[in-house]
Design a protein around this nucleic acid. Structure first.
Lengths: 329, 329
DNA sequence: CAATTGACCGGAAACGTTTACGTGTTAAGT
DNA sequence: ACTTAACACGTAAACGTTTCCGGTCAATTG
């Protein structure tokens, strides 16, 4: 049994479809009596208007796409939560897609989102190549990058100051007396590049030159601890490990435990994201707060502004990172 | 500029809309030459078919709704991830809505999902009252409950054996010599009721009678530690705390730390869900694995089956819980 | 050579909305 | 009493697809 339609409502109370529509939309060309009749009929048969038909007519779906790597990463859960809070109040809904850090899946998801005619899009792009965004621009759907920028294309984005994130980590670790620092980095995104750059440059400024063996890029879908093991097995003796994100830092914590290293006595660990749980790990994790939830909020606000005023200029927000010192360093 | 339409494609290569549609859908009533022409034109103008129009025509949207309390709870992140894995392969997409454990928001989200004409729905219902599900049945959209059942209505669901979860916790804690156990419970769901029942009944069977003061229900949107503090301030001296879920257990861990209790020496703590992070907390958390990801998988599989064969009987899956002993008990 | 077939393609209806336009009724204004 | 405006409502077109039905044209058949 197909869902009830406007025609059903109209037939049931003996008016035309147009009148039924007007009554339900609170337009004023309907007499109070007929309006009551229509509302009653609609309620009785459980009528729910079709967003499909509405969207086809109006050209807007009231759906915004959110394309992230995976919702299992609490960082993105925070971001999405922030987005949802903002857009809900404006009558928008979220269509959630995941790329799992794979270019192909990202592209497929993008196709889906375009087919669904999302009014706008917030995404954490996988690759720094501009293909995906060019496609968006071609189809001119408004979009905002979140968490990661793509430098080769002009767009709106909300990111943390990633160079500074790397620099802050370096400064903090140097201050604690570390100069053999292993950088466990993510692949395929510009934030990772910037953090690395900020990190290495700051180390160098303080006279610490780290060769490429001190930087490990974790293959996607692999536990970061194996990158650590790889480094250890190559004979590296790091006094500290700096991770691209807390997720990786947690995995490193697990790896160190597995190999019976004490943190922070044998090896210090720090991450980025300040996930809720990092306050409760063993030991509590030193990390850098990059305002996850706020990122979601701001990106959604920018997108909404673009939807309301299509001629809005691109907006870039760079949130300041903040060191959260705990016991892992 | 509105997105390109089939008519645009057709006009561009001088064929009818019907032919263009046939060419793009790989139907065989088109000559190879025209097909090539159409595909080329479609590619050139960046044509993306409209799911709205397609859905209006076909009566199915290839979207399934997922309605949970909040994606910030890693338990649901795991569940959603499992759902996504299954439905993606069958060409379905996820429309994610959150109820934030509020009946009103749940109802509003449901309206949205019905308006969007989702083909099916997977939900973790907030309340045990059947209003929401009756609405679903009235609109006859196939649905599957996940994580929580609603006993008053017949439906498909995938849950853990929640009575047993409570019983297992009780047995484990008794075995460790605890008989002053504080139960930090969730409100507004049947799983919570069952776990409590299993817990209390098992305690009683072993001669431990716990009065109502030993059961605290955490108000929604409140840190569980305040429920702990309340109990402590009432003069209770629990030797162990059993929490409805790991999220709460983590909050309790925080609260105990705040009040300088040592875990497990002063107070033991255990939770439910076996979240990834619980292996790395201080101390590593004893918990009960209820197969979060698997729940998502199974619920999605049931829903897909219902979509393929609408006459399918209701299916109920009760997954066996498994104790994961760590150092917090 | 006429009739039949088949390949290929266009016209048009349908899905469920919303709104511009037209029409009929009624009350107010002269 | 006649015009006019306001009001209430219906008709129909449009949004972008897909498919049914029919038509054209060339090739095959007798």
């Amino acid at each position: 049994m197909a869902p009830a339609t406007l025609k059903d409502v109209a037939k049931r109370c003996g008016v035309s479809v147009a009148t039924a529509s007007r009554a339900l939309n609170n337009r004023n060309e309907v007499s109070p009596a007929t309006r009551a009749k229509v509302l009653k009929a609609a309620d009785e048969i459980g009528y729910v208007p079709s967003s499909l038909a509405k969207g086809l007519w109006s050209g807007e779906t009231k759906v915004i796409g959110v394309l992230i790597t995976t919702i299992e990463n609490p960082f993105y859960a925070n971001v999405v939560s922030g987005i949802e809070k903002v857009v809900k109040d404006h009558g928008y809904n979220i269509l959630l897609c995941s790329s799992y850090e794979e270019v192909q899946q990202e592209f497929a998801a993008l196709t889906v989102l375009l087919e669904q005619r999302v009014d706008g899009l917030i995404l954490a792009p996988v690759q720094s190549k501009p293909e995906v965004l060019e496609r968006l621009q071609k189809n001119n759907v408004p979009f905002v990058l979140v968490g990661r920028n793509i430098p080769s294309i002009e767009s709106s984005y909300v990111v943390s100051d990633d160079f500074k994130v790397g620099a802050m980590a370096a400064e903090h670790l140097l201050q604690q007396g570390h100069n053999r620092v292993l950088f466990i980095n993510s692949s395929r995104n510009y934030s990772a590049e910037l953090r690395l750059k900020g990190f290495l440059q700051t180390m160098r400024q303080h006279g610490v030159e780290l060769g490429p063996e001190w930087v490990k890029t974790v293959p996607v879908h692999q536990d970061a601890k194996y990158s650590l093991f790889e480094a250890l097995d190559q004979g590296l003796k790091p006094s500290a490990v700096f991770c691209f994100c807390d997720c990786m830092a947690l995995e490193i914590l697990g790896g160190l435990k597995e190999r019976s290293f004490k943190v922070p006595e044998d090896v210090a660990v720090m991450g980025v994201d300040n996930l809720n749980v990092t306050a409760l790990t063993d030991p509590p994790l030193t990390t850098i707060d990059i305002q996850n939830y706020e990122m979601g909020i701001r990106s959604a606000e920018i997108l909404l502004k673009k939807l309301q005023e299509p001629e809005t200029q691109h907006m870039q927000i760079i949130l300041p990172p903040k060191l959260v010192k705990r016991n892992s360093t």
